[in-house]
């Protein structure tokens, strides 16, 4: 069952010579599916995540496309109608290190307000559910009475994750939830998420620049480059057979645990200026497999087996059944 369907979504920053940060993105998230959204910093992941939750802030604006969540078109619904669906259907976890918690309210009251404004619940039920979600993320129940500044960065982020679970949402969007945290805490949170998945069913859009991290958690990976989706593939098969040259480069740049002292390989070059209209393939200037046609023809996103790839060269490499254009 498809829970979220994003169709041809484009997001601009500004009106005069706008930065087109998200370009005709289409993707789906099934119920109970964990999807990872990866790509270099600045490729439009956060912009896309916020636009899906209709949290884009000026100068960002959705210029075209639709976001349908549980049969409701979120791009075509006014704020007032949308309000009851927020947190109930879609909750978000902001990048770690951002101050997502109100500094003058206790954790408990920030849990309470969202619960009482969405349903009529007794103080007892509020407390019960608050304890439940705190237990899920392994945070002491005592934080209920604490203020955000009294918690460490890792604790805060776990509290924020707990808060996102409060109303048992259908979809949680997490934008780099572990990026600012140290490796140990990062690992704990990842294990946490896996365990929570066993207790409660929800879909997850996990945004990160760290492909290695994403691969450990998610079922399916969406790779973004310069505002476009360049590859969509199941996590397992992606690890074995990445198709897009950019995905391959990302995988090669992972510090490989098995290879002792594996050299860190960056991707040479820089992404294109998003203010410009793209001519040909966006990745062509950095691509090791670039051909003449890549400079002039914009590659469509095509199905290669169960995967989808936006590359003129590699999509032809290994014929896996019949190719046909998805978009």
């Amino acid at each position: 069952m498809t829970l979220v369907a994003v169709q041809d979504l484009s997001v601009d920053y500004g009106r005069l010579k706008p930065v087109r940060a998200v370009r005709d993105v289409s993707l789906t998230i099934a119920e109970n599916e964990f999807v990872g959204l990866v790509g270099e910093s600045g490729c439009g992941k956060s912009t896309l995540g916020f636009a899906i939750a209709r949290l884009e802030r000026p100068p960002a604006r959705i210029v075209s496309g639709r976001v349908v969540i549980d049969d409701l078109d979120w791009t075509n619904t006014d704020a007032k109608t949308l309000r009851p669906h927020r947190w109930q259907d879609v909750s978000v976890v902001l990048q770690s290190g951002m101050n997502a918690l109100n500094p003058v309210m206790t954790i408990g009251s920030q849990f309470r307000d969202v619960m009482v404004q969405h349903a009529s619940v007794s103080p007892d039920e509020v407390l019960q559910r608050s304890y439940e979600v705190l237990d899920m993320v392994n945070v002491s129940r005592q934080v209920i009475g604490r203020y955000p500044h009294e918690l460490s960065g890792g604790m805060k982020q776990r509290v924020v994750i707990a808060m996102s679970m409060l109303l048992r949402p259908r979809l949680i969007i997490m934008d780099e939830p572990t990026t600012a945290l140290d490796m140990v805490v990062q690992r704990q949170i990842l294990e946490n998420l896996k365990r929570i998945r066993e207790q409660q069913s929800f879909s997850l859009l996990f945004i990160s620049h760290d492909l290695g991290l994403v691969l450990e958690l998610v079922d399916r990976v969406v790779v973004m480059y310069a505002g476009q989706v360049v590859e969509v593939q199941d996590a397992e098969s992606l690890l074995d057979s990445p198709i897009h040259p950019y995905t391959r480069a990302l995988l090669r740049s992972l510090p490989d645990a098995q290879r002792d002292g594996g050299t860190f390989e960056g991707i040479p070059g820089t992404p294109p200026d998003l203010r410009e209209e793209l001519r040909g393939c966006a990745f062509a200037p950095r691509c090791p497999l670039v051909q003449a046609k890549c400079q002039t023809t914009s590659p469509p996103l095509v199905a290669v087996g169960t995967a989808q790839v936006r590359c003129l060269v590699t999509s032809q490499e290994v014929p896996r059944g019949s190719d046909h254009t998805v978009r």
């Binding site: 802030r57 309000r83 009851p84 927020r86 918690l101």
Partner: peptide, 17 residues
């Protein structure tokens, strides 16, 4: 412009609150 205000919107809280 603070993140916690953005999150408050995401939480679907009433405007006045």
């Amino acid at each position: 412009g603070e993140d916690y205000v953005l999150l408050a919107t995401a939480k679907g809280l009433k405007n006045r609150w």
